[in-house]
Structures are given as structure tokens and as C-alpha cells.
């Protein structure tokens, strides 16, 4: 048993550090390393350390504009999806009614439809209704997949929530809204925070769906896509991508710390 246990532990360690490490983190590490390489060609040998790609990142107005567009769109999308998603999660997890399973499936549907089909469907939909493509069609489109994301993450937590706690809050003098605000929300907060970060990232990173419904708007992924057509832009993309990766990883670490603090409390 002990020897078998050791073999299994070794296999798991190998899998975790080597397989997952190589698959997930090596490409990112290479990306970051080459963002400091003084060459337009992303290949060895190493041509020397430089910060000039980062200087170009700081100078490109079009890039700043694209990041700004993505940031504010992701913010609006996250806020809308949080409200809709938390409400949907309540409907999925808390109440029993006819068609609840159907509703759950219906909420999760955008989640499982391929991005490409979702993008095409949304484009046709907007055309059909004669809605001109703009930042708002992007927002609407992102909400269609961010809402289910929030709903599913929050519903998972709500399933474990003891509804008697809300009864107790009502009994001790809370209105229904106060009971949600002082009891339910703090208890599901870790899931809501996680959902916020994921929803923001999904919107910020969304390329396929955005590509169909953006009109003349340029979000950050669309900027990267168009910049990629010119190989000379590659090191700049490396540099800005490195920044984004670091910021996003930082956000997730912060969220995780917050979540753990919330659980310890």
C-alpha cells in the first residue's frame, strides 16, 4: 500500500508539475521571455534584452483605445450579468416550480453552444431586427454568455445555502431585501466574487462572438487579431499580452485571497 501510494504520488506530481506546467505555463513563459527580446523574429538565438516593445505599447494610441473599449465594455457586461445571473441562480437553486429543470437547461444553453454559432446567430438576430452594430450589440452579446456563467457559479453555492437562515433573518426583523443583503449575499459572496472575475475576463477576452457583432468597434482581442496580420507587430503583441496575463493572474490571486479570507472569517 505504502509503495503503491508513493508511485501514485509520484505520478500525480509528475502530471501536475511537468504535464500541466508544460501545457499551460510554458507557452506563457515563452511569450513573456520573448517580449524582452531585441528582435522582430520570435526565435532563438537570443538577440539581447530590450524594453522597446513596451515603449511602443505605451505609444500606440489605437492599442490604448482598444484596451479602453474592452475595459468599459467588460465592466458594463459584468454588472448586467451579475444582476441577471444572481437572479437566475436564485430561480435555479431556491424555488421549486413547474419547468425548473427546463429553465436551468435554458439558462445554461448559451454556455454549450459553440462560440462561432453563437456569434453568427447574434449577428443574424441584430440584422433581422435592424439593430446597427455598435458597442451595445457587443455588450448584449457578451451578456448572453456571461449571465449563464454567473448563474451557474452562484447557483452551485446557493444549492448549499440553508434557506432557514433567511427565515431566521426575517424573524429577527429583516425585510426580504435586508435578509438577502445581510445574510444571503455575505454567504454566497465568494461565488459572486469569483463569478465577477470570470465574467469580466470572459468579456475582456471574447474574440469569436465579438468579431461578428462589433461593427466598427475595436476591442482588444480584435486589435490583436488585426495586428497579427503584420508580422512586425508580433513583439508588440507579445509585450501587451504579457502585461494582460500578469494583470489577470494578479486579479485571480487577489480574488482567491479575498475568498479564503471570507471563508476563514
Amino acid at each position: 500500500m505504502a509503495r503503491g501510494g508513493r508511485a501514485i504520488r509520484f505520478a500525480l506530481a509528475f502530471y501536475t508539475y511537468v504535464v500541466l506546467g508544460l501545457l499551460i505555463y510554458l507557452p506563457i513563459v515563452i511569450l513573456i521571455v520573448f517580449s524582452f527580446n531585441d528582435s522582430r523574429v520570435m526565435s532563438l538565438p537570443w538577440s539581447g534584452f530590450t524594453l522597446k516593445w513596451y515603449r511602443i505599447v505605451l505609444q500606440r494610441e489605437d492599442l490604448h483605445q482598444a484596451i479602453w473599449t474592452s475595459l468599459w465594455i467588460a465592466t458594463v457586461v459584468t454588472l448586467i450579468s451579475l444582476v441577471l445571473g444572481v437572479l437566475a441562480a436564485n430561480a435555479m437553486a431556491r424555488y421549486r416550480y413547474k419547468g425548473r429543470t427546463l429553465f436551468t437547461g435554458y439558462v445554461a444553453l448559451p454556455f454549450v453552444i459553440p462560440w462561432l454559432l453563437l456569434g453568427i446567430a447574434l449577428l443574424l438576430f441584430f440584422n433581422f431586427l435592424g439593430i446597427p452594430l455598435s458597442a451595445w450589440t457587443i455588450i448584449l452579446s457578451h451578456v448572453t454568455f456571461d449571465t449563464p456563467l454567473v448563474a451557474i457559479l452562484v447557483a452551485a453555492r446557493l444549492h448549499q445555502f440553508d434557506p432557514t437562515l433567511e427565515d431566521a433573518a426575517r424573524d429577527l426583523g429583516c425585510t426580504p431585501w435586508q435578509a438577502f443583503r445581510y445574510v444571503t449575499l455575505p454567504i454566497i459572496a465568494p461565488a459572486v466574487i469569483a463569478a465577477t472575475i470570470f465574467a469580466f475576463n470572459w468579456s475582456f477576452d471574447a474574440f469569436v462572438v465579438t468579431h461578428f457583432v462589433s461593427g466598427t468597434q475595436v476591442t482588444f482581442p480584435l486589435w490583436v487579431w488585426s495586428a497579427l496580420r503584420y508580422p512586425k507587430n508580433l513583439p508588440v503583441i507579445n509585450a501587451v499580452s504579457s502585461i494582460i496575463v500578469i494583470v489577470e493572474m494578479g486579479l485571480i490571486v487577489v480574488a482567491e485571497v479575498l475568498r479564503r479570507r471570507g471563508e476563514a472569517a
Binding site: 432557514t164 427565515d167 433573518a169 426575517r170 424573524d171 429577527l172 425585510t175 455575505p186 471570507g262
Partner: peptide, 20 residues
């Protein structure tokens, strides 16, 4: 009358203490 307006309190079967 809603529960929050009643001068009646409940001790719940499984206590229902707020875990947070």
C-alpha cells in the same frame, strides 16, 4: 403581518445561526 413586524421570535430546529 410579515414576520419582521411580529413581536414573535423563533428558535429554529437546527439553530439557523448565521455562519458568517
Amino acid at each position: 403581518l410579515p414576520p419582521e413586524k411580529r413581536d414573535i421570535n423563533i428558535v429554529f430546529q437546527h439553530y439557523a445561526l448565521f455562519p458568517h
